[in-house]
């Protein structure tokens, strides 16, 4: 290994004397990787989403260092701006506990760790072995500026771009169809009171047809029945947790 690195230092621009861009890339990469590891290991669910912001923002900086400006700003806009906010809304709507939740990791954690370490070792070995002698030339004209990206996107890639807009529309319609309350399954008898939620633990179509005023009332009465912040996995026979939405 020492001989290969010395050979590399002789042939390439210098493996042992990294440039400033490489040092910056390495530092931001360490931060990104650390934030990603915390994201997948922390017990606090909201903190996981916030560390994901750090990881995705670090990746945006990496794109900037690779002279892909437009991708970097799109990354900031889409991921940090909307995807993380969506995830936080999802955590909120599924009543994720604010504090530490002991059941954030499942039982197959050692197997997952073994698989991830094996895959990581294999991938890093193969990648380093394959690209030992390749260097990215960051000099010259910027390759990812907004002008360049816009030109290639609307000259060469305009048809996939339009197809992608259709896909986004389909995803939008699908998300609305999935998440709207099913008005056709409304049952007049089950919308009467909180005690008429049907048998506990059973998927009940009448449960999804609540009027908008009722969940707020139950939200207020909820902390009296159950400790706040608990996930609703403890007792399936609690009717209010299923009447939230």
């Amino acid at each position: 290994m020492i001989t290969t690195t010395s050979v590399l230092a002789a042939t390439g621009p210098g493996f042992l004397s990294p440039s400033g861009v490489e040092i910056a890339f390495l530092l931001v990469g360490v931060v990104t990787l650390g934030a990603a590891v915390i994201t997948v290991t922390t017990k606090q669910l909201v903190h996981a989403a916030l560390w994901l912001v750090v990881a995705l923002g670090g990746l945006a900086v990496e794109y900037l260092l690779l002279t892909a400006e437009f991708i970097a700003w799109v990354q900031v806009l889409i991921y940090v701006g909307s995807v993380v906010v969506l995830l936080l809304f999802g955590l909120m709507l599924t009543r994720a506990p604010i504090g530490r939740s002991p059941d954030a990791d499942s039982g197959n954690r050692p197997v997952a760790l073994a698989v991830a370490v094996a895959a990581g070792a294999a991938l890093v070995w193969v990648v380093v072995d394959a690209f030992r002698h390749t260097w990215i030339d960051l000099e010259g004209p910027v390759q990812g500026s907004t002008e360049v990206t816009g030109r290639i996107l609307f000259q060469h890639w305009v048809l996939p771009f339009e197809a992608l807009s259709v896909l986004l529309l389909a995803a939008l319609v699908g998300a609305i169809v999935l998440s709207r309350k099913n008005a056709a399954a409304a049952e007049p008898g089950t919308t009467g009171g909180p005690g008429s939620a049907g048998e506990p633990g059973r998927p009940n179509p009448g449960r999804r047809t609540r009027t908008p005023g009722r969940p707020a009332k139950e939200t207020r009465s909820r902390p009296a029945q159950e400790a706040p912040g608990r996930p609703p996995t403890a007792d399936p026979s609690e009717p209010p947790q299923k009447e939230q939405r």
Partner: peptide, 19 residues
């Protein structure tokens, strides 16, 4: 810049996500 830096970072991030 050495190509191994972004490639290794991508591989490690992928494995963190896999875990």
């Amino acid at each position: 810049m050495h190509l191994a830096y972004p490639a290794v970072l991508a591989a490690l991030l992928f494995c963190v996500g896999l875990y």
